[in-house]
C-alpha cells in the first residue's frame, strides 16, 4: 500500500472533526474524497503532507503511513516529507514571481542550484501540466498575468517540479470555468501513471470521471469507501445513496 490511514482521530481544540478513519490507497491510483461541506475532507487530505501542523490547536491520534513509514514519527523531517507529497489548493495560489520562478521555486528551496537542471525540470513540469505550449514564450512574465485555469496548471507544474510521488488536490477545479476544469481532469488522468493522487471534490461527475476509488465522508466519519463505479452505481449505505443522488448536502 502506498498510503494508509489507521484509526485516525483528529481535533481542532476540543472539536473532533475526524472519527476513527482507516483507509488504504494503492500506488498509481486516483482516490476521490466526497461529502457535504464541513465533513472533514480537507482536514483529512491535509494530514498527508502535515499541513495541519501549521494550526496551533490541531491534534492527531492514530497513524498515517506513506510507503509504510509513519510520517508523524519524531524522526521525520517535515520539509523533506513535503517534497515527496505535492499539494494543489482550491484557489490557484501562484507566488508573486515570474512563471519560471514559480516552477523553479520548489527546486531552489530544496538546494538545487544547477541552472540547466532547473531549466530542464521547469520545461518538463510545464509540459506534464499541459501548460508549456501556452507559456513557453513568456516564462519571464508574472504568473498573475495568466488566467485562473492557467494559474492552476502552473500550480500543478510547480508541485510536479519537486518530483513528488503523491499529489493531494483540494477541489483543484472548483474555482475554474468548465473548459479549464475539463483540462485539469484530463491532466489527472494522465498523471495517474506516475503519481498516487487524492482529490477532494464536490462535483460527482468529476469524481466518477477521474477516480478509481471514492471515499464518502459524513460528519467526520468515513461512511463508505469503494471502487468508484460501485460506489456510484450500487452504494451499500443509504447515506451515500442520498448524497450522490443529491437528496442532501
Amino acid at each position: 500500500m502506498k498510503i494508509e490511514a489507521k484509526n485516525v482521530n483528529f481535533f481542532y481544540g476540543p472539536d473532533q472533526v475526524l472519527r476513527d478513519i482507516s483507509m488504504s490507497i494503492k500506488k498509481n491510483t486516483v482516490t476521490a474524497l466526497i461529502g457535504p461541506s464541513g465533513c472533514g475532507k480537507s482536514t483529512f487530505l491535509r494530514l498527508f503532507n502535515r499541513m495541519n501542523d501549521l494550526i496551533e490547536t490541531a491534534k492527531l491520534e492514530g497513524e498515517i503511513l506513506i510507503d509504510g513509514v509513519d510520517i508523524y514519527n519524531k524522526n521525520i523531517n517535515v520539509n523533506e516529507l513535503r517534497k515527496t507529497i505535492g499539494m494543489v489548493f482550491q484557489k490557484p495560489n501562484p507566488f508573486p514571481k515570474s512563471i519560471f520562478e514559480n516552477v523553479a521555486y520548489g527546486m531552489k528551496v530544496n538546494g538545487i542550484t544547477d541552472k540547466s537542471i532547473i531549466e530542464e525540470s521547469v520545461e518538463e513540469s510545464l509540459k506534464q501540466a499541459a501548460l508549456w505550449e501556452e507559456v513557453k514564450d513568456k516564462l519571464k512574465k508574472s504568473a498573475f498575468a495568466l488566467s485562473g485555469g492557467q494559474q492552476q496548471r502552473l500550480c500543478i507544474a510547480r508541485a510536479l517540479a519537486v518530483k513528488p510521488s503523491v499529489l493531494l488536490m483540494d477541489e483543484p477545479a472548483s474555482a475554474l470555468d468548465p473548459i479549464s476544469s475539463i483540462k485539469i481532469e484530463e491532466l489527472i488522468y494522465q498523471l495517474k501513471a506516475s503519481y498516487t493522487i487524492m482529490i477532494v471534490t464536490h462535483n460527482m461527475q468529476q469524481a466518477s470521471r477521474t477516480s478509481d476509488k471514492t471515499a464518502f465522508f459524513y460528519m467526520g466519519e468515513l461512511v463508505e469507501f469503494d471502487d468508484t463505479r460501485t460506489l456510484f452505481t450500487n452504494p451499500k449505505k443509504e447515506r451515500t445513496q442520498n448524497y450522490i443522488t443529491g437528496r442532501f448536502g
Binding site: 503532507n49 501549521l54 520539509n79 505535492g86 499539494m87 520548489g106 528551496v109 530544496n110 508541485a159
Partner: peptide, 21 residues
Amino acid sequence: KFLKEGSFALGATKFQTAWKV
C-alpha cells in the same frame, strides 16, 4: 494564508517562506 501554505507544501522552511514568498 494559502500563499504561505503553497510554499510550505513544496518543502520550503519557515525562513525561506518568509523571505522568498
